[in-house]
Design a protein around this nucleic acid. Structure first.
Lengths: 224, 224
DNA sequence: TTATGATTCAAACAAACGTATGAATTATAG
DNA sequence: CTATAATTCATACGTTTGTTTGAATCATAA
């Protein structure tokens, strides 16, 4: 629906790159892996995207554009419904993190693969990737921070920013794995099949995030 | 202070590798970067460690051995003090995460550099790194999970395991950055100098973690 | 001192990397 | 159909990668 498509070479490259970057990271994925997996010629990436750097930017852009617009839209709806009174913190958290997590069930928008790629990438060392993310996310995080400030007027703003940050970390890590996670989860979870696991992850994570957000404030340290 | 050293080539390599892996990741750091930064010959890494893979394993091992022994020791002390009654969850969390975070102030044990390396690496895609971590951590996480089970007998074990996992994610992300973090934290935090920031991070994160751990349980999903 | 083992060194290796080229092929328009 | 543009292709370029080699240098002990 985006454009007339004489050939799906572009799409095949993006899909393969998404999957491989998720599995092996940016530096760990070569052009030959990508084009091999996509079944296209090696030169196709540079023809269609210009460079490897531009490719991964496009991999993220085609998903993040929708996600961040959706996050804005959901917040619009919430604020319209609430009128002038502040939102419930849990509603804001669900709008930001829940909207992202629910992408896992939407295969047309990347599904679990893209979600895990996001989780991985927030810890990615490459400078241009971090810069790109900061730019893509700026407007959205700004709005959500403001909404949280209004929702929690008694909590110092610096504290909210930190906790927003902690929530991002818990979420990234939760979705990045199922592999890395096995560090902590060997048993007891295996008996749920992966469908169950994903469906239960959202409410589980959401409870944790809201518990953390609403936790008692840390003691102020005294020394002068 | 650690040992008699006929030459500190090994140590210089480990220090440089630690710093560079932290800054650019495993695949993003070349042997020539490492040996150049360390001021040693290119072949020195392969002579002293055998391979790049063995090098990064040693980078982690020299720090993690101490950290995980310390975690065990602290838990021993706590359990001895408590006698037969269960520990406070907050004490367990502090023993596990606080012990690690306080390494940031201990320059002889890697300090902030190693701490940020850990944060980065828990999301590292390379298979052998994940395998190594899982192996190094197994005994410790097992003991801490058991301690948490006893401390929170009313909470389902699966829930505790998940929340332990979320806590790991929040912690990794919190220490990995100051760079990546700038995504969410642009202002309001800059006015604290970096010493303050680090000192305040520990109680802030600890409050968040305990709030998440003690949060109300997620609703059970109903469908049959 | 000489002899022996440990370490450092410059140089080279094949393999893999991202990118560029120009010809061949395919699609589109007149 | 023909002409023009878009795309695919095999191939090659110059770097950079991790690792190896054999000689040179160092330290230690007899």
């Amino acid at each position: 629906m985006t454009e007339t498509r004489p050939s799906d070479t572009r799409g095949r490259i993006l899909d393969a790159a998404e999957r491989l970057f998720m599995a092996h990271g940016y530096d760990g994925t070569s052009m030959r892996h990508i084009t091999g997996e996509a079944g296209v010629n090696l030169a196709a990436v540079n023809y269609h995207f210009g460079s490897k750097e531009a490719l991964i930017r496009e991999v993220f852009r085609r998903r993040l554009d929708w996600l961040n617009e959706e996050r804005m839209r959901v917040l619009d709806v919430l604020e319209a419904e609430a009128g002038k009174q502040p939102l419930k913190p849990s509603a804001i958290i669900d709008a930001f993190f829940g909207t992202m997590l629910r992408m896992a069930g939407d295969e047309a928008r990347g599904g679990m693969t893209f979600l895990r790629l996001i989780g991985r990438t927030l810890g990615e060392p490459a400078e241009f990737i971090r810069a790109f993310f900061a730019h893509e996310y700026q407007a959205v995080t700004e709005r959500y921070k403001e909404a949280l400030f209004r929702a929690l007027p008694e909590v110092p703003k610096a504290e909210i920013v930190w906790r927003f940050h902690f929530m991002l970390g818990a979420t990234s890590y939760a979705i990045a794995g199922t592999d890395a996670l096995r560090l902590v989860t060997d048993w007891q979870i295996e008996d749920e099949d992966s469908m169950d696991r994903l469906e239960r992850l959202v409410p589980r994570l959401m409870s944790f995030l809201i518990g953390g957000l609403r936790a008692p404030l840390p003691p102020l340290n005294s020394p002068p």
